[in-house]
């Protein structure tokens, strides 16, 4: 830049400016040092700013969304004929599969009755629809802003889905807005499993479009193309939510192609799943037991089968223990 455009003599009114600048720089560095990556998610001020920005963003984004829809409609029309043919074929296949599923479901119910297993599915039935008014894709942050919050029953930890698959989970819930941590965010870690082999791993976001599959043991059976689902091992997300498919990078690393994030996220539903609560230690008074209070312990039948032997009974001779 040409230095001749600048004045060095006129510093009289600028001395204060440099002090203000210095104070500003100190404020910024202090904030960065104290409000780290974890702290930002707990901030009530973040929830408050989301409450303000949610309706504003919704308003400002309307013309942009209109433009996007216009382009999508154009491209959709171009491929409508091919899609129609493919959908008819898929419908035919799905009808056959639906009949099979009805038989399997009936069989499952009978097994569950025989085993006395808990009949309901892990996948929650209660869902809340919400609109993603803002889809942040920054160099370090990938998050969505939803226009529904606690008043709709949404709370921290709830899974956020599109019809294609899991998108992320709620990390901040305001009264009428909520913030979603996308699966590809740097801070996202969720336990997943392969639908085919039930091998488990941790899906770790790294701000790329294909999150990593971590903690895969050597013996675990993961293959390219496997359907990835939530394993529910952390007790925070329900088991069986579709996440995506396994893909392999050029250096042989296994990553996930996220099913729910292949198209722009607009409408989503929030699965109102109650996570398994962390057990709380209970203070119980110690019971003092005197020697005479302990009844003799039954260990095994006597050899001749006449009655139960006690711990004090010596083993019968000639019998192997």
């Amino acid at each position: 830049m040409p230095r001749t455009s600048y004045s060095r003599a006129d510093t009289e009114h600028n001395g204060l400016v440099y002090w203000v600048l210095l104070v500003g720089l100190i404020i910024c560095i202090t904030l960065m040092a104290t409000q780290g990556r974890e702290a930002r998610m707990r901030q009530s001020i973040q929830a408050q700013s989301d409450e303000i920005i949610s309706p504003l963003t919704s308003l400002v984004s309307k013309p942009i969304r209109g433009l996007e829809n216009f382009f999508y409609t154009l491209s959709d029309r171009q491929r409508a004929f091919e899609e129609n043919k493919a959908l008819r074929a898929e419908l035919q296949r799905l009808r056959e599969e639906q009949a099979n599923f009805a038989v399997i479901e009936n069989k499952m119910q009978r097994y569950e009755q025989i085993l006395g297993a808990r009949p309901e599915s892990d996948i929650p039935l209660r869902k809340v629809a919400a609109r993603a008014v803002n889809d942040l894709k920054g160099p370090f942050v990938r998050a969505l802003l939803l226009d529904a919050g606690r008043e709709s029953g949404i709370n921290v930890g709830h899974a956020v889905m599109t019809p294609d698959g899991l998108v992320g989970h709620i990390i901040l819930a305001g009264s009428n807005s909520s913030r979603v941590l996308r699966l590809d965010d740097l801070n996202s870690r969720i336990p997943v499993m392969s639908e085919r082999s039930e091998a488990v791993a941790v899906l770790a976001g790294d701000n790329s479009d294909f999150p990593k599959l971590l903690f895969i043991d050597v013996g675990m059976d993961w293959q390219v193309g496997d359907l990835i689902m939530t394993s529910g091992d952390d007790g925070r997300l329900p088991r069986g939510l579709v996440v995506g498919h396994v893909v392999e990078t050029s250096n042989g690393e296994l990553r996930a192609k996220l099913a729910g994030l292949q198209t722009p996220v607009d409408w989503v539903w929030v699965a109102l799943f109650a996570p398994i609560e962390t057990p709380v230690a209970v203070d119980m008074p110690l019971i003092e037991i005197e020697e005479g209070d302990i009844p003799p312990v039954e260990t095994s039948q006597t050899v001749d089968g006449t009655g139960p032997a006690t711990a004090e009974t010596p083993p019968a001779e000639g019998v192997n223990p």
């Binding site: 910024c28 960065m32 990556r37 700013s49």
Partner: peptide, 13 residues
């Protein structure tokens, strides 16, 4: 920083 859910101070700096 607040609106983009970044760490406060990054854009300010």
């Amino acid at each position: 920083d607040w609106l983009s859910m970044g760490v406060p101070g990054q854009w300010g700096l």
